Simulated scan of single mutants.
Amino acid sequence: MLDTQRLLTFEAVVRIGSFAGAARELGYTQPGVSQQMRALERDLKTTLFSRDGRGLKLSEQGEVLASRVAEILAELRATEERIAAVTRLKEARVRICAFPSANATLVPSAISRLRSRQLGIELELFEAEPPESLQGLHSGEFDIVVAFRYDDQPASQSEPDFNTIPLLTEPMVLMMSDDHPLARRKQVELAELRDERWVAGCVRCRQEFVTACGDAGFEPRIDITTDDNLAVQSYVVSGLGLAVMPQMTQSFVKHPKLRSRPLLPERHRHVTATVLRSQRHTPAIIRVIESLREAASALATAPRI
């Protein structure tokens, strides 16, 4: 069995390129690093390094270990995190990570419902967009991830470790200022908008928008990009461009001069809650998911503003 500390030291030596540099980074002495590398070579019964006139060089065996060491250490860290998550969930402590607009709408409502039942579940909240949030779930950093995908994007259910629960499906809407010529229309065809300027949102939202425009036969002129939903609305009502955004972004804040209209052909964002399959039957997880589904149902049936 390989020693984890020796692997960490090996990774630092390879990344930095010298025993001395690794020693400085790790807070060891150079002889201490050399001693650890000799011990690792004994464990593996092979030579990992050779020296030439230009400094440290990996042997063929060392190259093999160097190609795998980052993955090995990442898996070890993920295993530690998942073990810690089991303990955390048994103590009814749940870490939820959600994307920004869900953290402003869906998650607060779910937490309020959960606390009203006085179940003794403690929550820690985090914010990230997928796929980063789903990577955190895989590594054990989070217990529940509220994520989203668009019509053409694969579901996270394809990841064998994941169990994904649908929460709601929301339409994409066209946003414009109230003085835009199309503001009187009940709905708008995307193909009609090829000559417009655009304000785009987060990376995945922007990718979805560009794909939709491509399907409609044009490449959009995106003048402004921002992850801030309120900023998107402000740019739109200032006449600097139109935007296509999920309907949820209007449920927690809407500029008074903003108008939104259904977009044709319809496109949707699918909001989900994802957990590890191994934890899907944990009582605390079940209760939080129940509250998220109730909050999603209430949000889906709420009057549009």
Rank of each mutant, 00 (worst) to 15 (best):
L26F: 07
A243Y: 03
A110E: 13
L73G: 09
S101M: 04
C202K: 08
A147N: 14
I83T: 12
S260W: 11
P154L: 08
G239V: 03
V244W: 06
I222F: 05
H138D: 12
L292P: 03
A155M: 07
D228I: 05
S260M: 11
A23G: 07
R6P: 04
S156R: 06
R221Y: 05
F10L: 03
L193M: 13
P262Y: 10
P131Y: 12
F99V: 02
A66M: 01
N229Q: 12
S297I: 02
T4M: 05
F19I: 02
T79M: 03
P131T: 13
A104F: 07
C202L: 12
H270E: 04
R42I: 10
S133E: 06
P303Y: 04
G27V: 07
T225M: 14
V33H: 04
F49L: 08
S158P: 00
R259V: 13
L134N: 13
R113Y: 09
S158E: 15
V244N: 03
K186V: 07
A78N: 11
E192Y: 11
L73M: 11
T47I: 11
R259F: 02
V210T: 10
R54S: 15
I165W: 14
F126V: 01
T226S: 13
V94K: 10
R293M: 10
Q187W: 11
L56N: 02
A212R: 12
S297N: 11
Q233T: 08
H138R: 15
E141M: 11
T301Q: 08
